[in-house]
């Protein structure tokens, strides 16, 4: 009994970290870009739309985290109402599967925030270069997507 409890707790801890860390990363990233954006908009209100676009970019990591979290909840039956009895090994496996998105989400969101904030500086100077500014920031996204992919593959790879 005690053992099976530990398994599900570990799985849920994984879900919590995936949602939480990626969310924190996104919050920091979005906040940073938001500061830059308001700096620009305070002098030049016309740039609101463009800067908003950039600000949204570091938000995706949080969504990936949430997606992973949901997937764990669904796989372990937290959402379905039919809670699985997981062994210790299974619990650890789920926890580990959540880690790519949690860790990469946290750091890449911050890194992307910095890139996007710099992009805000770029469009303050040259509004016509919005596309390039977005591309620079989106490059960071690759690694968040890869992490998400790894997490999903891992989760589907675990058999219960």
């Amino acid at each position: 009994m005690f053992e099976s409890m530990t398994g599900i707790v570990l799985a849920l801890l994984g879900a919590a970290l995936a949602v939480g860390l990626a969310g924190i990363g996104s919050a920091i990233g979005v906040g940073l870009v938001g500061q830059s954006a308001s700096g620009v908009v305070s002098e030049d209100p016309d740039k609101f739309g463009q800067t908003l676009l950039l600000q949204a970019l570091p938000g995706t990591q949080g969504i990936y985290g949430l997606l992973t979290g949901f997937l764990i909840m669904q796989r372990t039956g937290v959402v379905g109402g039919n809670l699985l009895n997981l062994t210790m090994e299974q619990g650890w496996a789920v926890f580990m599967a959540a880690m790519p998105v949690a860790i990469v989400g946290l750091l890449s969101a911050i890194a992307q925030g910095r890139a996007a904030a710099a992009g805000v500086g770029l469009i303050a100077k040259r509004p016509e270069e919005l596309g390039k500014a977005i591309i620079f920031a989106v490059m960071v996204e690759t690694y968040a997507v890869l992490a998400l992919l790894a997490s999903i593959l891992l989760l589907f790879g675990i058999t219960f």
């Binding site: 940073l32 870009v33 500061q35 830059s36 954006a37 308001s38 700096g39 620009v40 305070s42 002098e43 030049d44 740039k47 904030a117 805000v120 500086g121 303050a124 100077k125």
Partner: peptide, 10 residues
């Protein structure tokens, strides 16, 4: 972040 972005416009 805020000040630098604002200065970019200035």
């Amino acid at each position: 972040a805020y000040a630098v972005a604002r200065v970019r416009v200035l």
